[in-house]
Write a protein that binds this DNA or RNA. Structure first.
Lengths: 241, 241
DNA sequence: AAGTGGTCTAGACCACCCG
DNA sequence: GGGTGGTCTAGACCACTTC
């Protein structure tokens, strides 16, 4: 039981919000009151409230107080860190087939994204990901350096993210994606089992470590008939200048 | 002209990073050293560092120190809060034409998104947004209640966001989008000046206040030949405080 | 063992909002 | 004017990493 106080307070308040003890529109106790409730100083309380605020559960205003926000509408799926998050929430009526694993020299384009030299050997994989036995994603991965035969060993039924983090101990912290739409080529259409020239989403993804070093480049194609992307943003709460 | 200390420190460090005084991979001074440098206690220093961390400029590790991240790759455009942010950064070789403004009763679908009664009167607008004199976005807005004739008055060359925030004083804080791909209908194709059946991105957007009350529903279609979406995520690092 | 960031205490003053 | 959250001080101990 080594949980920091602020985490305990965070969970306590969140539980009371989700259970309906605090309802949307309600005012939470003031920070001063919470000092007595939890028997702590203001610091851990403010840490907890800060996290609840950036996550969109509460809204604080100086001179007024802290109120519980209206319920967030949370769709069944979200892009975010991709499949893995979705998997954990909604079970695994989803799987994955590796079509191809090759070691190839990096093309100019890939080298640029991974910040390596053109021609350097990289691992290239092609995979199909299924959801409810329908092919949804056609993925082309590009991974730097040759240490990655782990992928072959792990085979199917694994998310790439698991391999990256658990097996290779890479700390995937940032993801940047570029989205566009294209007509399905015959190859893509075949893999996603749709008609040629149907519109599909094409996404380029670069994953980074905490220090913004690229660790993965990924191009994938999505059947958006079957899979909707949800993205949500919140305004920055920065008072810097 | 009073600036909080933490904001001053935040700007100071950020400036030194962007000017190259602190380079990627460098260790920043320790928090203890900064106490002396800035002549403050740790609290404002930690607030500044916390903001820099969630923004991806630095990476902190207990027992190690604080290092400057590799430069973030920032594309020329990003979805985020839409056009307005882009406008401010890259000037306005972009404009907007309002095709149509009507008051209509809310359909079931729209009523659900805006959390109002079906049949309630709402404002519906159709607009085209141009970038470099090319039509990129075809937007269909749905705004609750009749207070919104401001839109008519403002006419073109305005972002919807400006109207919402400045004129109607609505505090747009959260945005949620759902993305899919469709074939351009003849109407869409005409407005975006592309061929019929070319793939376009279809996006549903709901905007919320800080308290997650919906204030706008928007469906729009994007020519992704001309406009790429960039989205980036960072792993939860909610050290707000 | 020494040093780092992470957490916490117990105070304090401020700007802001409301009645 | 009384109360709110926002900021700040000046300490303290902890878990963790590195030497």
């Amino acid at each position: 039981m080594k949980k920091p106080l602020n985490a305990y307070i965070f969970n306590d308040i969140l539980t009371k919000i989700e259970s309906g003890y605090f309802k949307p529109g309600d005012f939470l106790p003031t920070e001063q009151q919470m000092e007595k409730i939890y028997g702590t100083s203001r610091a851990p309380i403010r840490q907890a409230l800060g996290k609840l605020e950036v996550k969109g559960f509460i809204s604080r205003k100086a001179g007024v107080g802290t109120i519980v926000c209206e319920k967030k509408i949370e769709g069944p799926w979200t892009s975010m860190f991709g499949f893995a998050d979705h998997l954990m929430k909604y079970g695994n009526n989803t799987n994955c087939i590796t079509l191809d694993v090759k070691e190839i020299p990096a093309t100019q384009k890939v080298a640029k994204y991974l910040r390596i030299q053109e021609g350097e050997q990289i691992i290239h994989t092609k995979r199909i990901r299924y959801f409810n036995n329908k092919p949804i994603f056609y993925l082309k991965h590009y991974l730097p350096n040759g240490t990655v035969k782990a992928i072959k060993d792990h085979g199917n039924f694994e998310t790439m993210r698991t391999i990256l983090t658990d097996t290779l101990h890479l700390d995937l912290s940032h993801v940047s994606e570029e989205l566009s739409t294209i007509k399905a080529t015959s190859k893509i259409a075949k893999q996603l089992m749709i008609e040629e020239n149907e519109p599909v989403m094409k996404i380029k993804r670069i994953s980074y470590t905490a220090e913004y070093l690229p660790i993965e480049f990924l191009e994938y194609y999505v059947n958006t008939e079957e899979w909707k992307f949800r993205v949500s943003f919140s305004k920055e709460k920065t008072n810097a200048e």
